[in-house]
Design a protein around this nucleic acid. Structure first.
Lengths: 143, 143
DNA sequence: TATCTAAATAGAAATCATTTTCGTTTATTC
DNA sequence: GAATAAACGAAAATGATTTCTATTTAGATA
């Protein structure tokens, strides 16, 4: 995956740290907190500030290169998601893996909002939490 | 609206402050931040701590007596919603009014998650933000 | 390849919504 | 009218996130 190229296209400087953050998320199979990304960054760089991590995560998420979940605890977590289309995620709260969903009710919602409220939808948040098949299988084994 | 009775049923003490918080939300036509509720509480009580407001809002929301929105800024806002059925909300980010939506794609999502991921959905967040008809009408007037 | 400039970073400190602690008060039960 | 668990106040703590400012650096340009 040529992250360097992606950044260039978006006119973001391809700094080593920015690339490392992308790389960390790309190779993580689960979503990570800013603090967890920072921990991994500290293994790669002698000097790396937490604000740098926060800034980059927000920057990259804002450009759609990475995605974020708002957990019910209101903390943010980030993950790499190659899918550039609008879509939502199924988040396993046990192993923290994320799966894309193809289902999005945006159009139906827009229709209802328009018909019943005559209002305009500007954005929507949809997140589905649960337990993935792996985790529920493991749980059964334990018993 | 007999809030006293609602609280008794849920075995929550009907303290004056708890009742006042319910009353404030009941009479507010818009969603309020904990801080805004606190401001209104201070007009009614000489001594009222912010933790009391937080505690009660969470307590009441946990019991489903009031609802909350997580704003894109990740701050929580609370509002009274008489609808006890599972449903979602359309939130006007301009006037902060909330409208119930009848549309919920929960079943479809559950179906997709079950079929494609063989996973179990435990909860979902869905919030729709936009501009209500009143607000967009007012905006046009201004021009 | 050297120079320039806007973008990016470090480090420290600030912010600020939310929570914890703990001693006191109070609504409900008997 | 006690007794008691729940609720409260005040102050302090927490902790994720942001701001500030001086310094560094990637990428453009000569």
């Amino acid at each position: 995956m040529d992250h360097n190229h992606i950044l260039k296209e978006l006119k973001l400087k391809a700094t080593p740290k920015r690339l490392a953050i992308l790389d960390i998320l790309y190779h993580a199979s689960i979503y990570l907190s800013p603090d967890e990304v920072w921990t991994q960054m500290k293994e790669r760089f002698r000097t790396i500030g937490l604000p740098t991590v926060y800034r980059n995560l927000e920057e990259l998420a804002g450009r759609g290169i990475i995605s974020k979940v708002i957990h019910p605890d209101r903390k943010l977590y980030y993950f790499f998601c190659g899918n550039r289309e609008h879509h939502h995620h199924f988040v396993c709260t046990s192993c923290r893996k994320v799966n894309d969903l193809s289902f999005c009710a945006f159009e139906e919602i827009q229709k209802e909002v328009s018909r019943t409220l005559n209002a305009t939808v500007s954005s929507h948040i949809m997140q589905v939490f649960g337990i993935c098949s792996n985790c529920s299988a493991n749980k059964e084994e334990e018993q």
